[in-house]
Each structure stands twice: as C-alpha cells, then as structure tokens.
Design a protein around this nucleic acid. Structure first.
Lengths: 345, 345
DNA sequence: GCGAGTTCCGTAAACGTTTACGACGCTATA
DNA sequence: TATAGCGTCGTAAACGTTTACGGAACTCGC
C-alpha cells in the first residue's frame, strides 16, 4: 500500500534516494531530504518493519519475557508495569521498542524463550524471576543473543545482570531486630527455586553470624509464594515448640496471609510477633499495624535495566560504556509498626 | 546462519520443497516430508520471522497494548497477567503469539498505537481501558486493522468488543442495598474519562429508577483511581450534610483507602456504612470486615477475548463463527460483611 | 580548459521466506 | 501406443527495505 516505492514515484525520485533521505545518510541533498521528509509525513509513511529487519538483520525491538500466569514471583501489583515504564523510557531514546512476551502457564519457559529468540523477532532479551539454575541463561548464552537478567542466578556466565539488594535487606532486617532484642528470628521464604531466596538467606546467615547467633535451620520456613503461603506461615510459626519472636519475609504477599493468620489466632503483628516485610506493595501501605518493608523506585530500576542492557549491545556499547553490568540495586527501608516490639523488658 | 537454504542443501533438496514440506503442503512426498522434518528438528531450524512476514504479509503476532505506568485502570494485582494467560492459550492453538506493547507514560497512547500498527509488526490488536471517546478506536478503524477492545466506548463503530458487566454489577449492588433498606446510596467513581464509569452509572441510575428512588447527583463522588482516591472518598462522604448509608465503588483500589479513612474516623465498614466493592483483588480477600465484591475468572476472560478477536480476523473467521462480538462478561458476586448492615430497624 | 575531487543520485543486489508455474516421470485409460 | 492425469519437485519471482557501487554533473585549482 504505502511503501517506499509509492512514495518515491510520487516524488519522482529513486527509491534508493528516498531511503537514504529518511535514514539520515549524508550523501543526499538537503533540499531533497526536506522534500522527502515532508512528503513522508503527509503520506503517513512508516517503514515496513519486516522488510527492514530482513535487510538489516535487526528488529529494533527488545523482548521482555514474563510468566503470565502470575508465575514464580514478583508479578503481583504493578511491579512489572513500573519497570516496563523505565525500560521503555531508555529504549525510546534510540528508536527501540519494548515488546513484552508473556509465557503462558501452559508452556515451558525455556522452550518459549527459545522460540522467541531463534525466530529473530527481537534483538535482545530481558528475563526476570531468575531461578537458582536457570536454563534460559544457558540458552541465551549459547544463542549469542544480547540479554540482561533482572535477578542473579546460580548459573553463571559473563552475562550482565541487575538485581535487588536482598542480601543488604536481610542484613538490615536482622540488625534492626537484634537491636530490639530478638534472638530467634524466623524467615518465611518461597519454596520454589527462585534465586532471590538463596541470596536473601545468605544475607540472613551472614548477619546472624555477625551477631554471634547460631543458625537454626528450623527457623527457615518454606511456603508458597502467595497470600495463602503467608497464612500457612502463620500456622507453621505458631506450631513451633520454641516460637520465634520475629519473622522476616521474602515475598511481598506473604505479609497479607501472615497478618490474617495471626489475627485469627488473636495475635497482633508488632506486639506479639515482630514482622519485617519484603517489597512495599500497594497493600503494604494499607496493612494495620503498618508494615515495615522496603521500597523500590520501579521506574528508576527499569531505566537502569534498560541502560545496562544497551551497554551489552554492540551498537550502543559506546554510548553506555558501563561494560558488563553486575549491579545490586538498593532498597529503601520504610519503617512501620510491625516490628515495633522490644524483647526483654 | 541456519536458514532454509542451508537446510535444503544439506538434504540435497530444493529450497522450495523444504518450505512446502515444513508448511504441510499436500504436494510433497510423505517420505521426503519426514526427512525434512527430522532434519529441521535436528538442525534446530526455526523460520526467520522477518522473511516470512515480508512474503506473506502477516506476522503471526497479536499486539496487546497496555499503559505501562500503572495507567488508568485495572492494573493493580495481576489483572492483566491473568488475561494474558487466557489470550495466549487461544492464540497458541493457531501458532500465533501474543506480544504485549506497553505504552510508556511519556508517550501519547494514540501516537504509540499508530506507530505500532503501521509498522506492520502485528496482525491485530487488543486494546484495553477504553475511554469515553477513544482516539485509538478511530485510528484502528481507519487503518483497517483487525482489533478488539476490552471495554466498551462511546466512539462506536462496527468493531468487536468485550466488556465486563458493569451495568449488571451496578444493578445488583443497588438491588442488594435497597433490599436492606438503603435509600441514599453514594457511588465512588474514577474522575477520569474511562468508559466503565459511565456504564456503571447508567446501571446505577436505571436501578434507582426501578426502585422509585430519585437520583441525586451529589451522591456521585469523583475521586482519583487509587488507594488515595478511596481515602479522599471517605472524607468526602463524611463531610456530606446528609450522609449516605451505603456506597458502591467503581474501582478496586478504592475500598482500601475507604476502609482506612473510615477506620480513622472511628467508623467500621458494614456497621456504620455499607460498602460494596468492585473487582475482587488480592487485597479484597484480606480486608476486614470482608468486602462484598465481584469476581472474574481472568483466564476465561482472556480466552473469550482471544476467540472474539480471531472471529474478527479473516483467516480464522470460519473457525470462530461468532461474528463481530459485542459481549458483556458476567461478574460473580462474592458476598462479604461489608454490606451486612440493615437500615430501619 | 583539463584532470581531480566532490556532491548527489540511480541501479541493482541482497536479506529469508513462500508460492505460482511449469517440468518431469509414472500410471491408467482408451 | 498415445494421451490424459496425477504426484512430486525445481525454478524463479515477489514481498519492502537498505546499501554497495558506479555514474553524472558540478566545482576547483592549475
């Protein structure tokens, strides 16, 4: 319909010159360039992406794979929506577009990613919710596709990643609780193999050691990463013979169920048991007593993610000279009343 | 690298035959087809999407535009994630893929959509969060791109849409409240021009009329579509000279702020003021007293959305013969305690 | 006034597919 | 045996771009 050919013959100019004019090549008269640009605007001409991709071997699209069903972690609230916003802000500076690729619950994530990648429909990839051992990382490394992972992983490689500072979060949680006299501090963590649990637990154990507190494996409670998991956690905690005085959470929705479970047992968070939550979510703001948790600027995280990815893509590496990024993103403590209690008075 | 050409010469077969074999054409010997398929699998061959699109004029991708910044509505919890899952379930039956296109907060939605569409990177579009007057619909109609809207709109046209039954919801809310003796029923609705507010209010007014209750415009309170909006709503309600005995909500997060505001004023929902919420969200399950609200099966909604879109796409219209779908999707009442009070005893 | 350099533009190939068309060999029928 | 039909396959064009290459016109310095 509205191809470069029609545009060219309307202008009585060869198709090659039109292309050069539109793409800002130097070897075209400035006046004809102006003519072309004006005609293109009026014509409503937008290059056919398939033709362009085929020729250049590049699609100007960056894929962001997510698990649509509400998969392993993170995708509650508008976590991802905020991140998308930041990523696209970066990409749009370079006429790149973000396409989000939701892997359905019916399909194997690695197979899905494989398909998306070998089809050459994106130039680079962002993956998230990394697992302890993540097949997707091996796959992307092998396929030589530029990518960045939102989240560390046990499966190493030279690939860039950006992750939240779960180790730091764990450390601050323990410091804060120990300062208030707590010695038996439980941790409620997702039972799946998402990597952030491992990172968090590393920080947890390091902090205990620093304070000279022996690590008790029984204090690590594995639950489903959902509100129900939090409810289960309440039950598990209350069933322990030596009940912990505090609990830290490794998934944002756990606080909901935990509050519910404690309330049902007639206990109130922050008085009968200290709680420090995870990421501040829409719900966290609402809980009563208010939940101590950690805040992230999602948009800024997305911007950093986008820039770090571009730094790993050859055409943009000189614009973003940070090299292969392995960065830990800070989280800001939001003090609440859920860990107000002091032990030992 | 791994094109059909390499595959062909490895098999000593012409490139045309390989293509026909892979695409299931009838005019190829079954034995050679088997050879080709096996070699392709071993070879790891996946067709280059750009080449294929260019030739066929079709991309095998369906776009789903969202507003990434946490835009106008719906995208709290994993509303969209659930819908994506259902849509992709349908699409995968036909080797189509869903690509989610997040419009950043920095860009004009209509311009973004225009760009995505004229670039021919998707075969069809799904748009959501439709406004009263929605430029995107005019644009898509003009561009002759198959699309479906998740949400009705004032800007009409022959395009298919699927919407939630907000009119029915409003009716059931009023019926339920009137049956318990309420006569002054306020409604808290988003102040922006998202279309669902208008639909809801139509139902609200129709129901009042049905019960012989005069409509009082002062009872329609416009607030921001956020938790803060709900908090504001509490203030507005309590500031009214003739305080309503009940309030119905047109956005899921409003309940959160409303509870908070009432609690701060020493009032308890369901005793001092009846509340019926909107969509059941993760938070709704947690509120206390429990919130009366409405449940949707997000995945089923997504499936219906996908099927209705395919019905509007020429190649699939005979498989999904429902024609141009204008369908209203039911929402299931989830009774809670937030509207338990009875007036007039 | 002539060669060298520069500026600008047209030509055509190439990207990886799909598919219309025709060719070939074989079988069945008259 | 000739012919029509069928099954199978190769050839080549086409999709819409970008870009290497070469050529024409013009400028400049001698």
């Amino acid at each position: 319909m509205k191809g470069i050919k029609q545009l060219a013959e309307q202008l009585n100019i060869s198709i090659g010159t039109v292309s050069r004019a539109l793409n800002g090549r130097p070897d075209v008269n400035e006046e004809t360039r102006k003519r072309v640009l004006e005609a293109a605007a009026e014509f409503g001409y937008v290059p056919n992406q398939s033709g362009r991709s085929l020729r250049q071997g590049t699609t100007n699209a960056i894929g962001f794979m997510i698990e649509s069903g509400g998969g392993i972690a993170g995708n509650s609230d508008n976590f991802f929506f905020g991140v998308f916003d930041g990523v696209q802000n970066v990409l749009s500076r370079h006429h790149l577009d973000l396409v989000v690729l939701p892997c359905s619950t019916d399909e194997d994530p690695a197979a899905y990613l494989q398909r998306m990648v070998t089809r050459r429909t994106v130039d680079a990839m962002i993956i998230s919710a990394t697992h302890r051992r993540d097949e997707r990382i091996e796959l992307l490394n092998k396929a030589q596709i530029p990518f960045i992972a939102l989240g560390r992983s046990g499966t190493q490689g030279p690939h860039p990643w950006l992750d939240l500072d779960f180790e730091g979060v764990a450390n601050r949680c323990i410091d804060r609780l120990v300062a208030k006299g707590h010695r038996r501090i439980a941790v409620g963590a997702p039972s799946n193999d998402i990597n952030l649990s491992f990172v968090y637990l590393d920080g947890y154990m390091a902090a205990l050691k620093r304070h000279g507190i022996a690590f008790d494996p029984k204090l690590v409670l594995r639950v489903a990463s959902s509100e129900q998991g939090g409810y289960q956690l309440a039950h598990d905690l209350l069933a322990m013979e030596e009940r912990p005085t505090a609990v830290v959470l490794v998934y944002e929705l756990l606080a909901l169920g935990l509050y519910r479970g404690l309330n049902e047992a007639g206990l109130v968070p922050g008085r009968d048991m200290a709680i420090i939550g995870f990421r501040e979510s829409l719900v966290a703001k609402f809980l009563s007593p208010s939940l101590t948790c950690f805040r992230i600027s999602l948009r800024d995280l997305g911007i950093a993610l986008g820039e770090s990815l571009l730094a790993a893509m050859p055409p943009y590496a000189d614009i973003y000279p940070q090299g292969i990024v392995h960065r830990v993103w800070p989280m800001e403590l939001v003090p609440g009343e859920s860990d107000a209690m002091v032990i030992g008075d």
